[in-house]
Design a protein around this nucleic acid. Structure first.
Lengths: 224, 224
DNA sequence: GTGTCGCTATATCGAATCGATATAGTCTGG
DNA sequence: CCAGACTATATCGATTCGATATAGCGACAC
């Protein structure tokens, strides 16, 4: 999930270092991806190991794309190299040592895969992230993403409504009902997005029945 | 977080086994706590090790303690008895060996602590869980819980609104705006809850400034 | 009868993530 | 000159998830 966010940011904004990635994730995406360093740095290392991103020692202002360190197989050796390099190179201007990352072709492929990837990923953050990067998705895949999400939420909603909150006390019931409300709200948002998608694509037969009149399980006038 | 859910369930429903806990979490609490076995069983073990719960071998359905069947000496006869017994105990659905857990006094103490516990816990699931069990909380702590949550959400909202979504494309902007909307919705829900709390407590000084300027639809008598 | 399918039930594993913490350089202000 | 705030990378332990293994039992088909 984090991988997607990182790759997307690098794809859109070019070369970034860890701290900056985090800031952009927080500020740009409205905390949707509020990520900690404890997951960010491992994720970067993971992606680098997989060849999806490559590190460039230089602060982003300069160029000097210094060839990537050839993997020596010696961990301590590589660490020593990194340390030495850091001490010499960066002190140059202003900031402190940083490792900027840039996306590779393999990374772009991975990004596309993650973006469309039909994995379950019930996680709302994951969906939000995908949608935020939906610009990089072909139109049909975009639509499919929205539809898939809508289906999932609708299922959850019926499930909740079905179980009925009769047996619960005031507080638990309030939680359940609010959850259902939020779900409804989400679904109608998705419906609006789907509609917009279908409009922007030239639609001949817009009466597919989908966007037309799909009622949310039960409108349920709320307020006794 | 899971600990809280487990302890709460055991406190309210008495003796339960793992599978059943999970079901009640899913069905009762509207998927708010949709938990996997990979976290549930370790959590139970953790709680047991900490002395917060204790395991009882007996299936909880043992309302009527079946009188011990005198051993007949006949193997097939005993097997038949076992089968019959199982069938009567479990009624229509197959059951297997299970370990039922019951909450201890230490567990109750831990529960109270977790429930009120002012840890950050930005997690919406965590808050939902606490609120669902708010009945077990003294009224002032309940109010504090709501207020704390409201403050957090309000902060996030201003943060999002402050950053402004101008630089984003349609999709990212839609995500951010919808997040903000959902946040607003949550906040006004909390406001309604706070108001209800203040009403049900005898309100002498209702003009705390907080609840003052916030208009709220109606008290909404919550009984079907 | 015997597959085998589906449900109940417990359990473990690896990977992802979080929150806390360590380390360290740099900039600002008293 | 020191304190505190900010930038920056990194690691640790704990929690949680998803997948998977296992097993008993019921039910229905063949």
């Amino acid at each position: 999930m984090l991988d997607l966010a990182i790759l997307g940011l690098l794809e859109e904004r070019g070369e970034l270092h860890g701290y900056e990635i985090r800031r952009q994730l927080r500020e740009g995406l409205g905390l949707l991806a509020n990520v900690s360093f404890g997951s960010l740095y491992p994720a970067l290392a993971r992606l680098e190991a997989a060849g999806a991103v490559e590190a460039t020692e230089a602060p982003s202002t300069a160029e000097a794309p210094r060839a990537a360190v050839p993997p020596t197989g010696s961990l301590s050796g590589e660490l020593a190299v990194l340390r030495a390099r850091r001490r010499t190179t960066l002190r140059a201007r202003g900031q402190r040592a940083r490792k900027a990352y840039r996306i590779t072709d393999a990374g772009r492929a991975l990004f596309a895969e993650l973006l469309a990837g039909g994995g379950p990923s019930d996680d709302p953050r994951s969906f939000g992230l995908r949608l935020a990067f939906a610009r990089h998705l072909p139109a049909p895949a975009r639509l499919a993403l929205l539809e898939r999400r809508r289906t999932q939420l609708a299922e959850r909603l019926t499930e909740i409504r079905a179980t009925g909150s009769g047996a619960l006390d005031v507080y638990a019931r309030s939680v359940v009902e609010h959850t259902a409300d939020a779900l409804e709200h989400d679904i109608s948002w998705l419906d609006r997005l789907v509609e917009a998608e279908e409009q922007s694509a030239g639609i001949s037969r817009h009466a597919t029945g989908r966007a037309a009149g799909r009622p949310v399980p039960s409108p349920q006038p709320r307020g006794t």
